[in-house]
Amino acid sequence: MNLLTFTIDQEAAPLRIDRYLAEQCPEFSRSYLQKLLKEQKVTADDKPVKANYKIQPGVQIQVEVPDMEVPDILPENIPLDILYEDDYLLVVNKPKGMVVHPAAGHTEGTLVNAVMAHCGDNLSGINGVLRPGIVHRIDKDTTGALVICKEDSVHRDLAEQLKEHSIKRRYRAVVQGNLKEDEGTIEGPIGRHPTDRKKMAINHKNGKPAVTHYKVLERFGQYTYIECRLETGRTHQIRVHMTSIGHPLLGDTVYGSSKNPFHLQGQTLHAMILGFLHPVTGEYMEFEAPLPDYFLKLLEKLRK
Rank of each mutant, 00 (worst) to 15 (best):
253 T>H: 00
284 Y>V: 09
197 R>G: 04
99 V>T: 15
105 G>W: 00
34 Q>D: 00
205 K>I: 14
89 L>T: 13
235 T>D: 05
166 S>K: 13
56 Q>P: 05
171 Y>L: 02
43 T>K: 06
198 K>D: 08
138 I>Y: 14
236 H>F: 05
109 G>P: 13
38 K>A: 12
66 P>S: 00
86 D>T: 06
268 T>K: 06
269 L>P: 13
129 V>L: 09
107 T>A: 07
301 K>S: 11
145 A>R: 11
156 R>A: 07
12 A>S: 09
227 E>S: 15
234 R>H: 04
231 E>H: 14
234 R>M: 07
163 K>T: 04
111 L>H: 13
140 K>Y: 10
54 K>N: 03
222 Q>T: 10
234 R>L: 10
293 D>I: 10
231 E>N: 09
256 G>S: 11
41 K>C: 01
175 V>P: 08
93 N>F: 12
127 N>M: 10
28 F>S: 01
294 Y>E: 13
232 T>R: 02
62 Q>M: 08
162 L>C: 10
126 I>W: 05
87 D>I: 00
90 L>T: 07
23 E>N: 15
83 L>N: 14
97 G>Q: 11
114 A>L: 12
43 T>Q: 01
289 A>N: 10
80 L>P: 09
62 Q>K: 15
144 G>W: 06
188 G>A: 05
159 A>R: 03
241 H>V: 11
94 K>Q: 09
162 L>D: 03
10 Q>C: 00
218 E>K: 15
130 L>V: 03
176 Q>W: 08
143 T>Q: 14
272 M>D: 13
2 N>Y: 01
118 H>I: 12
75 P>D: 03
235 T>L: 07
